[in-house]
Amino acid sequence: MIIHANVLNYLIALAVAIILALALRLPLLPDKPMRDSWTVSAIFPTAVLAIGFYAMAYELGYQGYIVALIIGIITALFAKFILEKLVPRPETEESHE
């Protein structure tokens, strides 16, 4: 199987998204215990979204360092300002204890 993605472009999108997310005061990691945390952080989901969005752009024919850079910036802004409005956390969390 041939890996035809440019690994460096993914790394650029990833790094730019994480750095900008941290600059926008998102925490590096979610609160502990992480598996129950709804906190939007630089690693999750910002980093995952950045490489996913770059993969979408790549498949649509937009490739290169500049595209990766722009995707990284857009992803960080999206995670900080839009994500929680688009897919909000559940309003009432039931206690099962």
Binding site: M1, I3, H4, A5, P30, M34, R35, D36, S37, W38, F44, P45, V48, L49, I51, G52, F53, Y54, A55, M56, Y58, E59, V87, R89, P90
Partner: peptide, 26 residues
């Protein structure tokens, strides 16, 4: 779509699917 783009795109779509289902998505 191809490896790894397909998997990375699927991860994003699954994340949004999770959030819509009251799940943090990890």
């Amino acid at each position: 779509i191809g490896t790894p783009e397909g998997g990375l795109i699927a991860a994003v779509l699954v994340y949004f699917g999770n959030r819509l289902c009251a799940d943090p998505g990890y």
